[in-house]
Amino acid sequence: MKLSISRYNPELDSKPYMQDYEIALVPGDHMLLDVMLRLKQQDSTLSFRKSCREGVCGSDAMSINGRNGLACITPVRNLRGTVVLRPLPSFPIIRDLVVDMTNFFAQYHSIKPWLENPEPPPEKERLQSPAERDRLNGAYECILCGCCSSQCPSYWWNPAKFVGPAGLLQAYRFIVDSRDKVTDDRLKNLRGPYRLFRCRTIMNCAEVCPKGLEPSHAIEKIRSRMLNVEPSGGLDTHTPPPGRP
């Protein structure tokens, strides 16, 4: 397999450059991450984040042949030609494929990702019916990998002001949670020209989400809520794209 990987060492390089690699595939190379880990034996300076290797931690999010995805669940057999690996678009590059997620998490925190309920806590837990719990489907599964926001053009142009698909999907998750009682505040928080309304429903987010989530749809439902229209139905999920790059 031939790869072309973006390299950048802030102490040595003035800007990122592409480095070519070639590696013979062995029977154990099912996913791109398997190949990258063996590549690291060839070149120990190659830096990238990884952890769970099963698509639940979100660490190894990167641009794979122009489309964001998780290296650990991108099958090798779906990759054609020279595999071009680059860091997530628009996120500041710390080193090689490792990016600075500070702004991404700041936007997430700005939507207050916790339950707020001023009512006195009950004896046991705050109850929620199965139907109420189902409304969180399609939103709670987010692993905050950053694939969506870094593929969103609106987020590229205004990362400091536009919350981005990941943050907005979590805003939706708390807005529809029956145990949360500050819905009005949450909606007011998103009413300005930038926070939510930079979204143009381009849907790059849904295209690249490795968990098959659809932040664009959640954003539409938040808009409905702002107009006091209760959006019917929950969020769809789709089988994540089979890594067509």
């Binding site: 009413r191 300005g192 020209p193 930038y194 926070r195 939510l196 309304f197 808009r223 702002m226 107009l227």
Partner: peptide, 11 residues
Amino acid sequence: CEFTGLAAWVV
């Protein structure tokens, strides 16, 4: 003048 995000979108 400056519309808020929601008002502009509705208009």
